[in-house]
Design a protein around this nucleic acid. Structure first.
Length: 124
DNA sequence: ATTCTCACA
DNA sequence: TGTGAGCA
């Protein structure tokens, strides 16, 4: 199938599909006219790519994880032990980010409850 | 009608 | 990643 059909079937834009290829995530064959020729496997791969990307992973990480994914959408981390630490590290980064966001929200909450603007504050 | 590559008011 | 240009 060509890029248009794959885009419709996966929900990814044609632009994204070409980008995935540029990032080494997909390697579609080429028709004699230069058009990309995707097989069924690509449809499955694109769905996995989108899931991984939506998890906040970058294309570099996706490229490493992709070959470690079995026929289902389950990542067989056990098959690629090196990925375990990398994914664990990513998880820790997310935890840290959540902590930062929570702190930021708390500050915003305190501002709403005790505005710093409005009537001039008494001279310090 | 579709896809391709390249470039960015 | 979107969008548009200029081709094939």
């Amino acid at each position: 199938m060509r890029i248009g059909e794959l885009a419709r079937r996966t929900g990814a834009s044609e632009r994204a599909l070409r980008y995935y290829e540029e990032q080494g995530l997909l390697s579609p064959a080429r028709l004699p006219n230069g058009y990309r020729d995707y097989d069924e496997r690509c449809a499955v791969t694109v769905r996995r790519i989108r899931i991984l990307l939506s998890a906040g992973l970058g294309t570099a990480a996706v490229a490493e994880i992709l070959p470690c994914v079995a026929d289902d959408t389950v990542v067989l981390a056990g098959t690629c032990p090196e990925l375990r630490e990398g994914l664990a590290a990513e998880r820790r980064r997310i935890d840290a980010a959540i902590g930062d966001l929570t702190a930021a929200r708390d500050i915003l909450d305190s501002l709403v409850g005790r505005p710093l603007y409005g009537p001039a504050a008494p001279a310090a």
